[in-house]
Amino acid sequence: MVSPSLRAAIFPLADHFPLAENPSAAEKNSEQHHQTGVTRPFGLRYAVKPTAHSPVKMQAVHYDEQRQIGLIDHEGIKKPFTTFDAPMTIESTGEVARPTYDEIHDYDH
């Protein structure tokens, strides 16, 4: 079993707030690579334009640093970027598998 500290050194996150040395720095490799004459790796032949699930104008999305919530422009007003079916918020998982009254929907755009 690799110790957590050793794992951190060997397997650092490549980006997004990595907690160890950034491995994205290019390593100098003196090995002579096979000259293939192709310029794109095989996997990239499948690169496609992503299908938009729910079109969201990113210019309409904001962040409230005070409340630490997302906001979205809606009819000229900045509204929280969530939808509430009821005015109350569920505060615990509870005993029932599915909430039947109060619901929180997180739109994951």
Partner: peptide, 22 residues
């Protein structure tokens, strides 16, 4: 552009495989 899982036509397996790990 995004790269998703794709069914591979074996005839497409050429030297472009050499350019990185697949």
């Amino acid at each position: 552009r995004a790269v998703y899982t794709n069914v591979v036509d074996p005839n497409d397996l050429d030297d472009s495989v050499r350019l990185t790990a697949h």
